[in-house]
Design a protein around this nucleic acid. Structure first.
Lengths: 252, 252
DNA sequence: GATGCCAGTTGATCTCCGTCAACTGGTCGC
DNA sequence: GCGACCAGTTGACGGAGATCAACTGGCATC
């Protein structure tokens, strides 16, 4: 994919699931050492994606799953009219491409938000390994299930929360994921644009912009373009639900 | 679960995946006859659920997947504040419970919308079969993937469509699923309440009620409580997107 | 058959957020 | 170092849908 510029990267970051820093987050979590080597063998050499580069697009034939190794991506669907809905932002350790299992072709698009590196897991070979290694099979199911659960959260956020609650929830979840990657959970470096955030939440960009400003005024955040510092995690948490109360849209 | 009243049902509808009317919709789609018998053996006797009965609830230990055999269910999540978000309505042939694979316990609740019968697939036994029958394994993955894709549609609907478009889309998708079950796709018998529909779409019940009335005035539907007749499928289709145009929330 | 209850409908009003428009600042190309 | 361009911000305004309230009809209980 990439010319000479990245040869160095490819050689330096020699692929190996067992020594990968994302070991515990990625597919091999909970797999024995010998089985890990088998998995290792199926992983193709990593690919580099520049910002804006498309990993797969709607309609593409399914032939691999992908692990985000560094950087970040967004996945989204588009309807006939061309309306886009962002489904998720993907950080290192996350596996994408499961949407294509159903029909053997992708029904969404994955696009890099910044320069990112990707592990490719060709599916025919992965199937070989999973049929020999039941633990890996279970693990794979667990990973898809995690995606299902994550989408449940997304639906809850869109359906039942107000704009400010949504953004607060979004930032908190991002913060959590940063921490799981051993990064500072209170110093977010947003790789996605305001447009992307707005789209993900079902809002428009002006609303998101106003909310960032408001949260800054409230002393919850310190916002500087893509860099967002969470000054008061406690306040941010409290913003995730307005007044606990009894709006009709709510409870049951 | 059920006392004497249902013994007859259980005997009549003798379980057998190979002779089941839902064969083509359910898990065994595309599985050979001999493998089918093995799958058959893992299916526990069916359970009957009365309207409002809970199949599993948030926090329940995971021990089985469930196939809807007749009737219908809703699945939903609840947050700490008790706000509910309906994730899906499930018709015969559909498999539910995948959310629990990730953490070995359910993080959602499944509840019957009407008197329904359920096939239970105990997971430990299912794993036995899938490890012996790779085709079944692939099939299972395909089914979860279908759920992921379905949730993408739900997100797109919630995030990018207006209320009327949402309801039209909802009714059309229900119509499609009725047809796949060999029912009349233009004579819907809604097992869910207006509250459920509203919640599923991220709206309030008054809005849904008004939309039904409006669509009846337009001559698209004939509404009589739970019974909805689609008089003009073509018009209904056109309502799924307003004017194709260029709202900011849209395209990209 | 009267009573109560809940699902659903309809109307009046309010509000959050989308729309439109103007502006700012950062970045890239020349 | 200038201008073009795009991401992002801010303000003014309007509208889709939420909220509040009153009402209806179907159904179960006595």
């Amino acid at each position: 994919m990439e010319p000479t510029a990245t040869v160095l990267d490819l050689n330096q970051l020699r692929r190996s699931c067992s020594t990968c820093a994302l070991h515990e987050l990625c597919l091999p979590a909970g797999i024995g050492v010998d089985d890990l080597n088998r998995l290792d063998a199926t992983v193709k050499d990593k690919r580099m994606l520049d910002r804006g580069a498309v990993l797969y697009r709607d309609g593409d034939k399914f032939d691999a799953l992908y692990v985000v190794r560094s950087g970040s991506l967004k996945t989204f669907v588009q309807n006939e009219a061309g309306d886009m809905q962002i489904l998720a932002f993907h950080l290192p350790g996350e596996i994408i491409g499961f949407d294509a299992l159903a029909s053997n072709q992708h029904v969404s698009q994955a696009e890099a938000l910044e320069r990112s590196s990707i592990c490719e897991l060709p599916y025919v070979q992965l199937q070989q390994v999973t049929s020999d290694v039941p633990a890996l099979h279970r693990q794979l199911m667990r990973v898809i299930s995690r995606e299902v659960v994550e989408e449940h959260r997304h639906l809850m956020m869109m359906g039942r929360q107000q704009a400010q609650e949504q953004l607060a929830t979004f930032l908190r979840s991002l913060s959590d994921r940063y921490q799981r990657l051993q990064r500072d959970g209170n110093a977010l470096n947003l790789s996605m644009s305001r447009y992307d955030i707005a789209n993900y939440l079902g809002l428009v960009v002006e609303t998101v912009s106003r909310l960032f400003s408001r949260m800054e005024e409230m002393g919850v955040l310190e916002v500087n373009r893509k860099s967002v510092r969470i000054l008061r995690p406690d306040l941010l948490a409290s913003l995730c639900r307005t007044d606990a109360a009894s709006k009709q849209k709510s409870s049951g």
